[in-house]
Design a protein around this nucleic acid. Structure first.
Lengths: 355, 355
DNA sequence: GTGAAAGCGCTAACAG
DNA sequence: CTGTTAGCGCTTTCAC
């Protein structure tokens, strides 16, 4: 228990309370010897300032909130969120901030969280997952003055700070890779199209085809969410269209889809080639190395915090939008490695192209 | 912004600050009409008390901390932790507590977190993952007076509160199921044996064999961590011993191991039967339904919070240890369903046996 | 049942 | 460079 107060330290060091406060807060106006003396006492006694008192007096808590709306907290176990959360937590540690986690399961919980977070004033800033299109959470949060950064581009992005990747171009890059490898009948299994990320990756697929003057065949587009079983079921349907290659909007989708392909007795990539999206390290499938788009999830978490601290520090005058780089990681599932050198050459060009 | 203070509300309602405070805190000594009047004003103005001021004055913050030590935060993306965290977050919402998340990546971060959490006095209690055996985190935390509940039985459990399942008996139940089905040469792939959970599940495997007077063949024990690739690599080795059935200490291990089995051209369960551990819903493998031990991870999270609130409320006089129930879930991978009715009968007996 | 008053432990002017 | 002095907004005795 932090029974010790500033007063106690002041007494022991033979100075006033304010001087101790200055030392604790690294204020410049303290003579070197006094600083030393006070720091000694602090160290010897193990004194730590009381957080609540500090917050009350300074109106800053060094706490930020991390909100996952109900539309995403149900899929919180998707490797994406833990990884992102790790990055966020890491950056908080780095900057001596404390992270408050809010997972909303129901619309009621969302309301409760919003009201708590906005009005009790114990948070310096807020990180919110973009969530489903039409979700009112972000809208409500922007009404208030609290510094806010959104994870993922919100549907109506005007004036709100966010950190994201360029999903359209990343997906385009993935599909272009398949086109470069010479495949025809390239299909896709989409993510949820009521999230910008799902829409954007589908849009990227379309653009790649259009750019290469390939007609878009709607029957080669199967709709899913991001989960493994979505991939499995969507692939079952897609198989009827006999695609030669598939761009899956997430690694999890790719995993499920590849399961369906194997079940059908087909080989990967000889019969159907795959490119996924995410490159989650923990999804390493030892049997089949997945070609995929790597997004720097952990670093995005760090960047989110840094952006938020910037807003907290320097005000919200300009809206920040940070776009992180992605990278095509070529492994076995796309068939590039099996192909002859000449094609490999043109394919490996795309490896280093970042959005 | 919570520009409004108690004072403002008091003025508007024509009462004193203390009365408003009483209303806010549901104190009994307020006449009904005054209570009504004050509540009206609060509602109309949208007043919310300032959290820092409250904490400072009352010495209670309604915040609890959730700490993942460095030995587990690296595997935070294992579905177990997100699920547990969901349960914890949900219970916090339920009880109007705020959750502070601490993920330690390095030993330095651990130190920093401990010191912050113990001495700045802004937390009413603490939840800590048990972590690796020999980890000093819990030891350090128990030194302080702060209410503490550990997730998973700590290695030296004397006097510390914890919530866990009975890993030994759950594993025993799983292996017994395989024995009942008539398999010989039952192997296991363990979890990390520097965690109590890894040790306990291995112990359960051993006990089941001993109980049934089956000699333990150490070459049928392959050591892994909990990850999918551990399962894959361990199985590669185990295959040389030609096991007829395998108890995997986690679903992820089972997944990886089954991949290796398929790669070897063997069938599940006809050639090798499997039982896993966890029953993570998001790991539904559409190709092969895994027989496994279900542990109520989300409910464990809820229970952790409830136990902690109990300690906060009623003091640490008695040490709480809560053991949650587990359940054997019979699906395809163990081969029970393919077997003839008589054997099925005896097997299904074990289905409802809970620890 | 209600109000007055004294802090909770700290920060931040303001003098000096 | 240092000390004094007000608060930050709330809870909580203690009188009445």
């Amino acid at each position: 228990m932090s029974r010790l107060t500033l007063e106690d330290i002041a007494k022991k060091a033979g100075v006033s309370r304010s001087t101790v406060s200055r030392v604790v807060n690294n204020h410049p106006n303290v003579s070197e010897d006094v600083r030393q003396r006070v720091q000694r006492v602090i160290k010897d006694t193990g004194y730590r300032p009381n957080a609540a008192a500090r917050t009350l007096a300074s109106q800053r808590s060094r706490m930020i909130g991390l909100i996952y709306p109900k539309t995403v907290s149900s899929v919180f176990a998707d490797p994406y969120y833990p990884r992102l959360t790790q990055g966020i937590a890491s950056a908080c540690n780095q900057n001596n901030f404390t992270l408050n986690l809010f997972l909303a399961n129901t619309i009621d919980e969302e309301e409760k969280i919003i009201s708590r977070v906005l009005h009790t004033g114990f948070l310096d800033g807020l990180l919110v997952e973009a969530g489903q299109i039409g979700d009112q959470m972000i809208h409500k949060l922007t009404q208030s003055e609290i510094p806010l950064v959104v994870m993922g581009r919100p549907y109506n992005a005007s004036g709100v700070n966010y950190v994201d990747i360029d999903n359209v171009n990343a997906a385009r890059k993935a599909v272009n890779h398949l086109i470069c490898l010479g495949y025809d009948r390239i299909g896709t299994i989409t993510g949820p199209v009521d999230f910008t990320v799902g829409i954007d990756r589908l849009e990227g697929y379309r653009r790649a085809l259009i750019e290469n003057e390939i007609e878009i065949d709607e029957s080669l587009i199967a709709y899913g969410k991001f989960a493994e079983e979505d991939g499995y079921h969507a692939m079952k349907i897609l198989l009827l269209q006999k695609p030669r290659a598939v761009f899956a909007a997430s690694d999890l989708i790719a995993l499920g889809a590849m399961g369906a392909v194997k079940e059908a007795g087909l080989r990967i990539p000889e019969d159907i080639a795959f490119v996924g999206f995410d490159d989650h390290p923990q999804l390493k499938n030892p049997g089949l190395e997945l070609t995929t788009i790597r997004q720097p999830v952990r670093r995005m978490g760090i960047r989110l915090v840094e952006t938020l601290l910037d807003v907290i520090e320097n005000g919200p005058a300009v809206a920040r939008s940070v776009i992180m780089e992605t990278q095509l990681i070529v492994r076995e599932s796309c068939g590039a490695k099996q192909m002859k050198a000449s094609i490999l050459g043109s394919a490996s060009n795309s490896v280093d192209v970042t959005t």
